[in-house]
Write a protein that binds this DNA or RNA. Sequence first.
DNA 1: CGCGGATGGACCGCATAGGA
DNA 2: TCCTATGCGGTCCATCCGCG
Length: 396
Amino acid sequence: MSSIKELWEKSKETFETKNLQQILSFAGDGKLRDRNSTSTEFRELLDHIPSKILNKFADDCLTEKFDDSGFALQDVLNQIGSRLNFKIENGLYRGRQNEIGYDGIWTSKEGHSIIVEVKTTDAYRINLDTLAEYRNKLIKQNRIDEDKSSILIIVGRRDTGDLEAQIRGSQHAWDIRLISTDSLLKLLSLKETLNDTKTIQQINELLKPKEYTRIDKLIDLIFITSQDLQLEEPLETEIEDKAGKTKEQTEELKTIPVNFHDECVAKIQSKLNRPLIKQTRISFSDKENTLGLTCAISKLYKQGKYEKFWFAFHPHQQEFLKDFPEAYVAFGCGSAENTFLIPFKEFQPWIQYLWTTEKEDRIYWHIVIHHRDTKFLLQQPKNEKASVIDITKYKI
DNA sequence: CGCGGATGGACCGCATAGGA
DNA sequence: TCCTATGCGGTCCATCCGCG
């Protein structure tokens, strides 16, 4: 028996053309119910698809009314929460007696819990007291903290005037925030263009109720975000410099270290089909800590008519990687165009044959990759049998 | 909130090989 | 013999990040 996740892996094109309703019909009995196999399979699929498809699914839920479209949207939105670096607890599709009927609980790294309620339409009124009651019950059960929790209503359509007024006028106004699915998707796409995970954490603050009469915090946020995004700017010009051989006055300035980590990691993410979270400048892992990655980059060094790239590989990077069941080292050579993704298990035996630098308190290995014609060769100077390893096949 | 160590990566230079 | 490409590292520098 094959799941829809496997179907995804086998024929990704299918998902471009089929709508969500059709896709769901491939999973289990095709009906989303609490704790049934369709639900499990669907959520597993959501973990693996790129955000673009996630976007499409959300759109399908809202534009093509079908059975369970509300339930599907709930799962899709929880997945978005997960990609925004929240820890997700899926709620029930249908409330029932003696169970709390929230749609999801999103917990941030700092421990703030957001109780999520999904509404596909604002045609009928939400009972805000019911939502507040979910929260109270969760507080009583010690599953969330009163001071560190709030409610977020995610609506399908932008037209929410009525609901906004309702919230503003209610006693729960200070505990509730409202966002449209569209905006949440925008937030996700913004997140995926950022460099620093800290920035997205700040942006996520927006989802908590806060008083914005004074907008300093908001300005800070815009500032931080645009700064983060600017990091990518110099890259464009730098590439043009190389291509067009038009070095401007930048020649005089100290060379700016190359910066295309994010392009490399973006490629790796789509190759591995898994979202990765930045840990340090060059190390990354997935949210379950089952996959680790280091991604080093180097500028191009000209040596006569040949080209080479230079990287340092540090013992702490090895330490970081060896704790993951699945680990990779990646090297970006000159630009994200030449990114090599090597399973750590295969890379590890090569380390002993690398040059080393040893100081009293510091040891690391030199990784030199030569570019010869179409091949990329990793130098193994201490290996008498094979002085180079052809790593061309690891290019992604 | 400033500081210093850790980290990532650029730059430097001598030795050697080998061809002109 | 000289010159250049390459080999083989060592050192320096900027940035980041944790700590007090």
